[in-house]
Write a protein that binds this DNA or RNA. Structure first.
Lengths: 334, 334
DNA sequence: TGACGTCGTCGAAACGTTTCGATACGAATT
DNA sequence: AATTCGTATCGAAACGTTTCGACGACGTCA
């Protein structure tokens, strides 16, 4: 920039003003300056600017599993919107590990990101400090964390799960199994609650033996499912609380020599492209993944753009998920 | 840091030396300084450091489709390794659009990332300038770009496709269709070449009508597949050059009232978890996605770590893909 | 005992911006 | 003609580090 100033025969301050439009500059000088910029091949140094302004035009995005299609489309939406507003996205993945998450949050904070969007793997001092510090806006996605008062966008897990299990009950199933996720996560708890509600609604007694627990991951899902399937009086329908355990469930069914939906009905959380093309076509709870990303980024942008919005009380947006009934949950007519 | 210096009663330079170990500091002072750091709650400002040192400890990662499981596991591997070496990852997604890619490359360059890993959607002046500038190391993944002399890690697409098509031919198919990707991409060209080679090897005449073209995307794949299936003398087997067109292909088969593998055999590029659990279980060419990420990051780290490696001639690593034969490509015995 | 390294510490410059207050100048107002 | 005002420009300080050269103290060797 100093070279540009020299080449154009003006002061540093004027060049800065011309580049950023932060102060009036006469047309003549503007012309000279832009010519000089091209001549010198000047590119503004974002680091220096960040140091001075205290903002990096970068947001930190922290997800639990970048390999999961659910997060993937959400990330995509966030990125798209962020870039359109001139923000870069620094991506971190906790692999559902709270310690990794802490490390990455520190990394992001060190890099002075302007804001955070995080799908937390669990409450940590770092996350709490971030939120309570109030210096950097934080938007939670997918998972709420207890006692953390900040913006968030999640779905109505209770209702979504209730709908799905209700659907199974309506099809005549009385022994409905559940493969639940980690109960330390709000999603895990809420989906469990939805299951209980649906059972109660249908007048089915809750039976602890019918709920298997899988931390996230297809292999865990497999084990939990295998256990349910080996029960003497095994369930006639199973709901899996996320897509990975859904995969595990399907594998377990296959390995047990059972057929879906003939021998056992299946539904699971999280829709994906393939669910609709291979067999059995899977009944799923489709989350509005795109909308989650967009909403989260919009909330963040509001806080980022004008200082007054910084002080707004936390807003939590709850979106609705949609039950997509396909073959896996309905026994074929014979 | 100035506060720390004041609190510890030492100079700024000494604090810096103590923090970074860049110069000897007596044990006594070290103690005082660290105590002061805790007292003051000092956190090093990465931006200021970057400005001074000219490095950001951040790499730019540019992929074509973040929604695609292929890229997703590669990204994951890159991230993991990057973080372990203290690098942050700035993720951009071009959506297979060269213009978007240009924009994002500029964004990354402005942010002064220390290195790039890019799956390019096509040659652009920005990418070329980056590579030829030689200031920032670039490693290409998945796709080579013509005339760009830089590190790269790709797979042997010719061999992989040849193997897959050979497998179809060996099963007795003589009319083997191809759904090819964009020929502007090295992957598209190479896979096409593999197809030709396999045909020739099997003594099958090449028939232009049997190759459909799909830019990436499931819908394109669907259209291309539908066209092939509506041929009077339609192919008895089809190979799809990527996972998305594979999905489209399966949908098209279903909509045409055909069954796979009974009526038509299918194989496609890119393996994914689900391929092995739903029916028909898909025959795929499994890329070593994890290894691609690891290799790419290793190449980049070498260039990043020591200055002498900067001058090394470009290295391109070619990994092997693996054909996973499952149900979709073999007609069941009757 | 004097010259000479070595070790530990420090002051100050530098990285490339932004921004504040000062200044210059012509036009508008009295 | 003197005052005021707005506009355009500039000089210089500041952001928070790193790093280079200088410097004093101390031990070692001739």
């Amino acid at each position: 920039m100093v070279d540009v100033a020299k080449a154009a025969g003006v002061s540093l301050a004027t060049v800065s003003a011309a580049v950023n439009g932060s102060a009036p500059v006469s047309a003549a000088l503007k012309g000279r300056i832009h010519k000089a910029i091209r001549q010198v091949g000047y590119k503004t140094n974002a680091i220096a600017r960040s140091l001075k302004t205290g903002t990096t035009s970068t947001i930190g995005l922290m997800v639990a599993d970048i390999t999961n299609p659910f997060f993937t489309t959400t990330i995509h939406a966030i990125q798209e919107l962020a870039h359109r507003h001139g923000y870069g996205v620094m991506l971190c993945c906790s692999d559902e590990d709270a310690d990794k998450e802490r490390m990455h949050l520190r990394l992001l904070a060190d890099r002075m990101v302007d804001g955070f969007i995080v799908a937390s793997a669990g409450e940590t001092p770092e996350l709490r400090a971030l939120v309570e510090g109030g210096r950097t806006p934080v938007v939670l996605i997918d998972r709420l964390v207890d006692g953390l008062e900040t913006d968030a966008v999640v779905i109505d897990n209770v209702a979504a799960t209730r709908d799905a299990v209700r659907h199974l009950a309506a099809a005549g199933h009385r022994r409905i199994g559940l493969i639940t996720g980690r109960r330390t996560l709000s999603t895990g708890r809420e989906r469990y609650e939805g299951y209980r509600q649906a059972l109660e609604e249908a007048g089915i007694a809750f039976e602890p033996a019918l709920v298997g627990s899988a931390r996230f991951g297809a292999d865990d899902g497999y084990k939990a499912a295998a256990k349910l399937l080996s029960l003497a009086d095994r369930p006639t329908a199973i709901f899996a609380c996320n897509n990975l355990s859904g995969i595990g469930l399907m594998r377990a069914i296959h390995d047990a020599g059972l057929r879906c939906p003939d021998d056992i009905a299946v539904a699971c959380f999280d829709d994906f492209d393939w669910a609709n093309v291979f067999h059995p076509r899977l009944t799923t709870v489709a989350q509005p993944t795109q909308a989650i990303g967009v909403q989260a980024m919009l909330l963040l942008l509001e806080r980022l753009k004008d200082a007054t919005a910084r002080a707004l009380p936390p807003r939590v947006v709850r979106l609705k998920a949609e039950l997509r009934v396909r073959d896996s949950s309905v026994r074929p007519a014979r």
